[in-house]
Design a binder for these strands. Structure first.
Length: 558
RNA sequence: UGGGGCGUCGUCAAGCGGUAAGACACAGGAUUUUGAUUCCUGCAUUCAGAGGUUCGAUUCCUCUCGCCCCAGCCA
């Protein structure tokens, strides 16, 4: 299991636990988009706190706005949380299940003279609200009688008015320095079918009213949310105090997660999807849970990451490299090794019999012998990686070059004898090499040093595949910043044009024919790869590059 | 310029009056049939800044500076 780090919320809970016996948290997504890794932070926090302290965490959909929400998002969210490895018993909660109770609470508020029906247009409500520096002024409808308010609210519910004709507002303080307290709207008329309640309602409660009451009804003890709701806490508390609810949860805010080289808001992700900068919500370049999953990320790595980064109130942008390191840590343990050549260069072994084919043994994991071995085919013609050969190599180039001897992993030592080029273009067509028969398996009795070991694939016994080489979606650590003054905050211009390179004719060792989606392999010396769950077909294999291996050589070259 | 937050290594992050944990990154070195992995070693005399209280302050007080959020009938 992941390590557990100390953070301020845990401290608060530990202290509260001295008085109470148990805690209950909740994860309250709005079903209006796909979950991303920022949500994973909240999911891990809420579910792990509950688990660590023997409490419960409710999954509750905050579905109060039918204009934006959809069943397909409910389904994707459920599937993503399950994949992340969290459970919530039998019951899934929905704010919409509380619509009747919420209505009663609103009536109660009116009866307490703490809410009123306001008939100002939305534009006028905005004007009356004042600004950050000027206080607001009372709505002319603020002093309607309780009876009148009750009657109007009932008519709103019955569908007697058109959208926008009236709203129900809490009666708090138009002069409050906190704008959220300036008589916030708590119910609006929206003649719209709801994914779950269908046409039962034509008025829908707003977030601030719904959320605290939902928490209270579920006996939530700790309501964890992000920093931007800090200003809403007085309102959260006001509703529960005014309504004298039995349970008054503690709202605690923490900073949302940001990652380098990506964007995290639903709005921005939506834009990338809708304008086809990526293919879909589960595009492997996106930080969505579905995208990361398709890319080959493990849920363990994501959970571990969420634990590692900690929880605080400081706004931060975490290095993508940390996520990738944690992923590679996990994959290094679990992923079986295989050989694949992405950019093939043919080698002909001069002194190997034309028709001879040999099966060699290869370990599936160099450090874990219990993962077994497999057979790989060796033959006269093989492929190596184009950039593993240089005609005129620099110092410390531990790969193949004219007259140099290197090792083909698990096979033989070979020496490059001749370079065949295209007469016109000068492009290297193939290499003629010799092998040393006394080095089968990749060792020699004379303990002679060979500095380089290359991966390779038999030319006659390999499979062709498409490989999608993914890179970061943006070319700047913070895509929101801009170089050009007049294009401030246009993250689109910072999209990395090379975020996806498609390699059509990669050559893979035969055993990879059995690969299934989400099963990640390490292609030796290259990185981690997995079969694409959407587009790959048995007769047209497609692999995604999950993450490349650390490449010290690439660094030295620079 | 109203209100609410936040400022500890390049990036996260512990620390809660007793003299700066850890992780990632980075730099060296060792081992290696992946220039992978693993393994050592190094990496903040200083906690946004300035004052003050104290024997002693990143921790308490004051002021200053910087950054973020709030004016949806979104959540």
């Amino acid at each position: 299991m992941e390590k557990a780090t100390k953070h301020f919320i845990k401290t608060i809970i530990e202290n509260d636990l001295k008085k109470n016996t148990t805690i209950t948290t909740r994860f309250p997504p709005e079903p209006n988009g796909y979950l991303h890794i920022g949500h994973a932070k909240s999911i891990c926090l809420n579910f792990n706190m509950a688990k660590q302290f023997n409490g419960n965490c409710n999954l509750r959909f905050d579905d109060t706005n039918p204009a934006k929400e959809d069943q397909k998002y409910i389904d994707s969210i459920i599937s993503d949380i399950k994949w992340l490895g969290f459970n919530w018993g039998d019951k899934i909660f929905y704010a919409s299940d509380y619509f009747d109770k919420l209505y009663d609470f609103a009536v109660d508020l009116i009866k307490k003279n703490k809410a009123y029906v306001c008939s100002l247009s939305s534009e006028d409500i905005r004007k009356y609200r004042g600004t950050l520096t000027e206080s607001g002024k009372n709505s002319p409808y603020r002093e309607r009688t309780i009876k009148e308010n009750l009657d109007l609210f009932s008519k709103m519910k019955n569908g007697d008015f058109i959208d926008g004709a009236h709203v129900l507002r809490a009666k708090i303080d138009m002069k409050s320095p906190n704008i959220n307290m300036r008589d916030p709207v708590i119910y609006r008329i929206k003649k719209m079918s709801h994914p779950r309640t269908k046409d039962k309602w034509c008025i829908y409660p707003m977030y601030d009213f719904t959320h605290c009451i939902s928490d209270s009804l579920e006996n939530i003890t700790h309501s964890l949310c992000t920093l931007e709701f800090e200003d809403h806490r007085p309102l959260y508390d006001w509703f529960l105090e005014t309504l004298k609810t039995l349970c008054h949860p503690k709202q605690i805010e923490f900073a949302r997660m940001n990652l380098t080289f990506t964007v995290m808001s639903k709005r921005k992700l939506q834009k990338l999807v809708n304008n086809n900068y990526v293919t879909s919500w589960d595009d492997p370049r996106l930080p969505t849970i579905a995208g990361l999953r398709r890319r080959g990320y493990t849920s363990f790595a994501i959970r571990n990451f969420c634990e590692t980064i900690g929880v605080s109130k400081k706004e931060s942008r975490i290095d993508m490299e940390l996520l990738e390191t944690l992923l590679k840590d996990d994959l290094n343990e679990k992923a079986p090794r295989a050989m694949a050549v992405l950019n093939p260069l043919k080698i002909v072994i001069e002194n190997w019999d034309k028709n001879k084919i040999q099966q060699l043994d290869a370990f599936n994991h160099p450090q874990k012998k219990e993962m077994g071995t497999r057979k790989i085919t060796f033959s006269k013609e093989i492929f190596i990686e184009k950039n593993d050969f240089m005609e005129d190599p620099p110092n410390k180039f531990f790969r193949l070059a004219p007259k140099k001897e290197i090792r083909l992993k698990y096979a033989y030592y070979i020496t490059c004898k001749k370079v065949i080029k295209d007469e016109k273009t000068g492009e290297i067509k193939k290499l003629i090499c010799t092998y040393d028969p006394k080095t089968k398996g990749g060792t020699s009795k004379d303990k002679r040093k060979v500095k380089g070991t290359l991966h390779w694939v038999s030319a006659n016994d390999c499979i062709n595949a498409e490989v999608r080489v993914y890179d970061r979606l943006f070319s700047m650590e913070n895509p929101e910043t801009s170089n050009s003054e007049n294009l401030k905050n246009n993250f689109i211009e910072n999209i990395n044009p090379n975020s996806l390179k498609i390699i059509k004719n990669a050559k893979l060792e035969k055993s990879l024919l059995n690969a299934v989606p989400e099963k990640v392999f390490q292609f030796e010396r290259l990185g981690y790869f997995c079969v694409d769950s959407k587009d790959s077909k048995p007769d047209n294999l497609i692999f995604n590059r999950t993450v490349p291996l650390r490449d010290t050589w690439a660094k030295i070259k620079k």
